[in-house]
Design a protein around this nucleic acid. Structure first.
Lengths: 187, 187
DNA sequence: CACATCTATATCAAAATGATATACCTGATT
DNA sequence: AATCAGGTATATCATTTTGATATAGATGTG
């Protein structure tokens, strides 16, 4: 199983829906998929060039008068084919990186208060994320009855909801454990 | 905020507890932290060399007679200092990569059955992971009353438990949605 | 005694991260 | 009218990470 450039498929997938510039792709990705995959300009622009060279996308300069110049990309038939082939394969990549858990894991070396503060900040961060995703969810539910177009988007939003809720539940549990143990040891 | 080589701190953190070889580090990391951070030989060996050059660890050849030759590394006082400084800073890195969600997100392009199969496989995978983590949890709970040494390890295990449970709950919810929508549209 | 598996170190190309550079546009403030 | 913050847009780069491969001796087993 060779190393796969996943950015390729994210870009093709988004372009399959509509023509976009690199900047647009970043915005769409941040909005729709950032809770389970993040992508930066450092991947987007070089990948777009590579895809253009391979004939999987075509580039044209947007003829809008106002605003800076935009390079608009469209997916080609060959690109759509590559995307569909990828979609048929089983997924390979799945991993998470939580620096907070590393710092907690090695947390014996610092005052317990530091760990508690860390978890508080984590909670605050993900309380916001949950709020955001609940908003998405509400909006999607309003349109989901009529057209099932957004069903897959909805399913990914549900994933985010579950995960953020799990984060918050864990944070409370961890804080309680830290507090209890702290009291016992007189901290 | 410069780019930080997180592998450095994982290695220092593990060496702070006991002397280890690169191979040992990989095993310890796979066992204890892989549910929230994965590390490969491609990071371990070069990072150990770098740490040795910087005087944060020292290397000696293990004098065991049996088995292949082992390079055993120990943390130095300077290394411990670097580790503690890192532990005091707020965490930066937190991200997740779920290729399955990308494939579901773009799932309109393939038969719905493919998406359902994907989720089934995901469920099976994480049912196993949950089993494993429940075993850890049980073992830890048996020792946690006497000594609070493993409290931080326990807290990271609880995180894994919450996450895996969230995965499974989501998978059931998603399968139900796919099934319902499939029936409605006659698939 | 052949074979698979485990221990152990090491390296490398490709991909991703995260930061920075550049520059023009828009709208609000002084 | 000038200034300034913030948004739009493209691009590049060093560092880090990924994921695979190479090598080789040790150990267990059928």
């Amino acid at each position: 199983m060779a190393k796969e450039n996943t950015s390729v498929y994210i870009i093709l997938g988004l372009l399959n829906h509509e023509d976009l510039s690199g900047y647009d792709i970043k915005k769409r990705a941040d909005f729709m998929i950032s809770s389970f995959w993040e992508i930066g300009y450092g991947q987007i622009y070089p990948t777009l060039s590579k895809l253009e060279q391979e004939g999987l996308v075509t580039k044209r300069v947007s003829e809008e008068t106002k605003g800076p110049e935009r390079n608009l990309y469209s997916i080609t038939e060959a690109g759509r084919e590559v995307l569909i082939q990828w979609l048929k394969l089983p997924e390979q990549k799945e991993y998470t990186k939580y620096e907070i858990l590393l710092k907690l894991f090695f947390g014996q070396l610092v005052p317990r208060e530091d760990s508690a503060k860390r978890i508080d900040a984590f909670k605050a961060r993900h309380t916001e994320n949950l709020k955001m995703i609940e908003m998405f969810k509400g909006n999607l539910e309003r349109v989901l009855g009529k057209e099932q177009d957004h069903l897959f988007f909805y399913i990914t939003v549900l994933f985010g909801e579950r995960i953020y809720k799990a984060y918050l539940d864990w944070a409370d549990e961890a804080l309680k454990l830290l507090g209890d143990a702290g009291e016992q040891s007189g901290e």
